[in-house]
Design a protein around this nucleic acid. Structure first.
Lengths: 239, 239
DNA sequence: TCCACCGTTCCGTCTGCCGGAACGCCGTTC
DNA sequence: GAACGGCGTTCCGGCAGACGGAACGGTGGA
């Protein structure tokens, strides 16, 4: 385990998580390093273009990591294939549509098409949220063989009622979709997408103010989601 | 300059740029490393969660870098403030709207709201394109004191006619917007946004099939862009 | 003006990185 | 089926260079 490498990434993550450029000492403390060591490593990162030192001497992350991270994401087959379905759903439903990926016990928001409205969604593309808190996350877990075990771990971690979670997953499995209302006033409906052999499971979800998702409207959304999910699974099954 | 750190990033970038997981030897060659060194560094990166080794033994970049890169981007004031304007433009115009940032001689696509149509735009979020090839890039260069010098360098680099480029920038400066038709059949109109003291210059652009941007429609788009650019500059000027 | 804090630089120590070499595994060839 | 080549992985001696304590100079605040 190369120590310098590990430390450099630790510094970079500290900078990336900060909302503003940090002083040397602050970064050093965040990463648990001596200031001379932090100073040298930051110098290396600056030289490599991942960190920028502004006039005040403070250090900040550049967009370099994001740039090549975006390259990784853009090359995911899921992302490319999903684009059309996301647009289609957004056009017919008119609500916020999200594409997610299961990563451990969490869900990562891969892409998002936001319905322009005053309601602020707190999850932005790239963010990571416990799977059980999201509709698509529960839909994905309900489909996986080890889903119950993962759900158990996650429920324990976040202090959720394991029996209730388990029942919810059962229901999601039989219906083919899951519902979540983690943010007050906002309802999400999510389905799982078979992402083929290569990649992990993917999820598709629609989020909207609760009052938009009742009665026939809700049924329409569910229908559209199930349809899109099924057709996307087909598209991903192609070589 | 910590050698191991530099090498680790080189490996990671090689993996991120690859369209599929790579074998050890391939990554080692791409990064110019001995296979034992590459093997050890990749092991470190796997341990840190930036690289994943699949069952076949091949190595691939995970979404970890993208995740924290996305955190960096999400914290940019420009990105947050621009979101509303991008949506507004998209709604009134109905075409693809992009948010860009000037980075050296290039433009980075920070965000994008795509008009659903068969035309495939080749630039995705996170990609980097020479500023002179884009409408917003030219608009931004036309506003900067050192814009002419930067344009000269870029023109030389890409074999463009310096006099023509210079004239175009002059025109953009006096009109307040720039036009580009780099991709055949696609026309873009871009304006610069004063991004305040802290960050670099930002750009806003609308791209559409050429035939959509003629006559009164074009004037409407230009008007909306200038309006949005001005109001966004105001918003960014607030502390 | 003084003081405290911080960024930067320096340098002796020795850690832990480096890479050549060896081993074992697999797929291929004859 | 045996020999072979290519690759992934492991090992280890040598030493480059990472490490961090200490010192210095600059800066902002009291």
């Amino acid at each position: 385990m190369d120590r310098a490498v590990s430390r450099a990434f630790s510094l970079l993550e500290s900078l990336a998580s900060a909302s503003e450029p940090l002083r040397l000492i602050e970064v050093a403390q965040l990463a648990g390093l001596q200031k001379s060591t932090a100073h040298r490593l930051l110098g290396t990162l600056v030289e490599l273009g991942y960190v920028r030192q502004e006039a005040s001497g403070r250090y900040g992350a550049t967009l370099r990591t994001w740039e090549f991270g975006a390259r990784t994401v853009a090359q995911l087959p899921i992302k490319r294939i999903a684009a059309g379905f996301i647009h289609g759903l957004h056009r017919t439903i008119g609500e916020t549509v999200s594409l997610t990926l299961l990563s451990g016990l969490d869900v990562i928001y891969l892409d998002k098409l936001i319905a322009p409205r005053p309601v602020q969604f707190r999850t932005s593309v790239g963010s990571r949220v416990p799977a059980l808190f999201t509709a698509s996350g529960k839909a994905m877990l309900s489909r996986r063989p080890d889903g119950v075990e993962l759900a158990r771990q996650s429920a324990e971690l976040h202090g959720l009622d394991i029996a209730a979670v388990s029942a919810e997953l059962d229901e999601a499995r039989s219906r083919g979709y899951a519902i979540s209302s983690y943010s007050p006033g906002v309802l999400s409906i999510g389905v799982a997408v078979e992402a083929g052999s290569a990649a992990a499971e993917a999820g598709l979800s629609v989020s909207a103010p609760s009052e938009h998702l009742v009665g026939a409207d809700r049924d329409a959304v569910i229908g559209a989601l199930l349809e899109a999910g099924a057709r996307m699974s087909e598209a991903l099954a192609q070589p």
